[in-house]
């Protein structure tokens, strides 16, 4: 993030509260110039990304993403996935089908895994959203991320954020108790490269570490 944008975020205080700086930086680190983080105040500025929809078809969503509070003005049709990717610069969540059929867009809403492509952004009003960018604790990887590395549970990497978010939820739900159960409860996440063997091994491994930790 450029210094200019950092200042802007601070100016927007009241609309945009960053309780976890890292969460925003994760997305913004790939956004060298544009004010991707919208606040009511940022909207007033001349922005090439301003939404040209009439007021009645737009709405303001107040939500918490990766520990940071956001107030975002959106076209009411916008999906949570497009909000994350196109408006907040959080491109870790992937679009693989846009119809809830592949799992690449999986994020947590209030701790539960959902398909962000089929979730209207309007629905996360007052909710807590966690994306892959908010999973690790600074430089400390989540045990699931480490297990995915250790078991080479990925190839092209495109489905990986969704797999990891689904896998973390799978453990929390109590559905990582056997390889059969993991396979069933991870079937909402297609991996076209075919890394399923490693994914199951990684989840079994991480589940143990998560229980210990």
């Amino acid at each position: 993030m450029s210094d200019e944008n950092s200042r802007e975020c601070q100016h927007s205080e009241g609309f945009l509260v960053l309780s976890r700086r890292s969460a925003l930086l994760a997305g913004a680190s790939v956004v060298p110039t544009a004010p991707f983080v919208r606040s009511a105040k940022a909207q007033d500025a001349v922005s090439p990304l301003a939404l040209p929809v009439s007021a009645e078809h737009s709405l303001t969503v107040r939500t918490n993403i990766n520990g940071g509070a956001f107030e975002i003005n959106l076209d009411a049709r916008t999906s949570l996935l497009d909000m994350l990717r196109e408006h907040l610069g959080l491109a870790g969540s992937k679009k693989g089908c846009d119809h809830g059929q592949c799992g690449a867009c999986t994020v947590h809403v209030d701790g539960r895994r959902v398909a962000s492509c089929l979730t209207l952004a309007a629905k996360v009003e007052g909710r807590e959203v966690t994306t892959i960018e908010g999973l690790s604790d600074g430089d400390r990887l989540h045990p699931m991320q480490q297990a995915f590395i250790d078991h080479d549970a990925l190839q092209c990497g495109y489905c990986t954020p969704g797999q990891i978010m689904a896998a973390v939820a799978c453990v929390h739900e109590g559905n990582a108790t056997s390889s059969e159960r993991i396979r069933e409860y991870m079937s909402g996440n297609i991996c076209r490269c075919g890394a399923y063997v490693g994914i199951v091994a990684a989840i079994q491994d991480a589940a143990e570490r998560m229980e210990r930790g």
Binding site: V30, G89, A91, G157, T160
Partner: peptide
Amino acid sequence: DALEKVLGKPIYGADMPLPGM
């Protein structure tokens, strides 16, 4: 590149953020 990938950091074709897109 596994570390980058588990963090969701790689920039795929549609991930490049650009002003005025």
